[in-house]
Design a protein around this nucleic acid. Sequence first.
RNA 1: GGCGCAUUCGUCUAGCGGCCUAGGACACCGCCCUCUCAAGGCGGAGAUCACGGGUUCGAAUCCCGUAUGCGCUACCA
Length: 451
Amino acid sequence: MPDIRTRFAPSPTGDPHVGNIRTALFTWLFARRHGGKFILRIEDTDQAREVEGSVDAIKESLRWLGLDWDEGPEVGGEYGPYFQSERLDHYQSAAEQLIDSGHAFRFEDERGSALKFAMPNDGSTVVSDVIRGKVEFDNSLIDDFVILKSDGFPTYHLASVVDDHFMRISHVIRGEGWLSSAPRHVLLYDAFGWDPPGFVHVPDILASGGGKLSKRHGAVSVNEYRQLGYLPHALVNFLALLGWSYDDKTELFTSEELIESFSLERVSKSGAIFNLEKLDWMNGHYIRESGDAELTDALLDYWCRYPATELPPEPDRSILLQVVPLIRERLKTLADAAERVPFFFNDDFDYEPDQLIQRKMDGAGTLRALSEAVKVVEAIEPFDGATLESKLRSLVDELDIKVGQLLGTLRVATSGLKVSPPLFESLEILGRERVVRDLNRAIHKLDSTPQ
RNA sequence: GGCGCAUUCGUCUAGCGGCCUAGGACACCGCCCUCUCAAGGCGGAGAUCACGGGUUCGAAUCCCGUAUGCGCUACCA
């Protein structure tokens, strides 16, 4: 194979959509797989649709997912510039070449003077697509199309062909929506006398109904998924499997494995519905796989970027490091952590007194359990999870109640939660002083409640 | 309307003529484990391979129609 050079060429029209980023991922994977170059090019030829900040959002999304580019904005490269708005002279001279060779003609209307490509009125054009094979189009069915707009900017057709040629792109990998306009592109290559690149039209990512993925279906951009607490690698792995598969069973891949395994031949032909439940599962899997320090820092970074109201502005890292093993397997996203850990950092939580009273218990019994528990906790030595467990289990026997009854009460008293991380380990982290205080507060709350 | 692409469990997919009484994963259900919630283990249910014709000894796999979905048919990409 010749030098592999691929490109991701988004228009700066907003926060990049997961569908486009999935295409970028395939494009990147293909380049990396073959030791080629991955180029980022910004297609800003429609000033009206341009959205402020989009280029930063695009770079940020790619960077977060680890899709590094070899040429493009910031890194430069020998085939720049990489913004189409800075390459108008290329399109201009290419257009002139087409006029000279009789392939293009001026066209006037209310908007001014534009340039159109003259379609042949007979014959057909074959597009050779890597995953769909040869697709034939009847030339007479395609109208002459604008290549240079009256504002002096090129249309996508001209700009992408000219850039792909001069940037030595070997494979044009893009969404399947472009297949229908691909014959125009091969005709342009012909008219210029250039060899066309390989065309690869990859399937779309769809919303649950099978339609376009849009805001009404929830998150659509990579940045939104980041904000929802998904890990970059979980998104990468999940997106890689939307429209591509390695075999009949492998689903979990490291980035290195993805690069080693990726091939365009195994990209599917039909659109894939974005299955959020599976992303959740995969994200949970990668959270479970991460080490204590790794997860701790991921959470800290996440909260720093998207502050959680229920947590202190700068949660204590050493506490979180101890908490992480207790919550790791309970998280689907980083966002899930905020609701289960606040009590480790603050004791200002509140709850209704009757939440202390467990099933088939009454106020008096709960009060007795609580005050006995205080005695145990005050005396226990050492104050650690294992000792707490054995002493409190003995207390359960002495009180002749159920384990769940005692622990449920203690859980609410020390965390304010009905569902919390494992109790004994949590108590150890909280420390004796704090636990005694929480239990006494619970006793007081119950005591002052009219039965 | 015309042209193009697509069509396997709810979803992502394996399958590229006999290995398929169609495999895996997520979700779902049940059991086990268990201090809540999870995680984990085990098991279950779930697809007449869109439909109809062919070709073949034999088709989810090849061919032709039909239906449905999507895309193009813009001085948007």
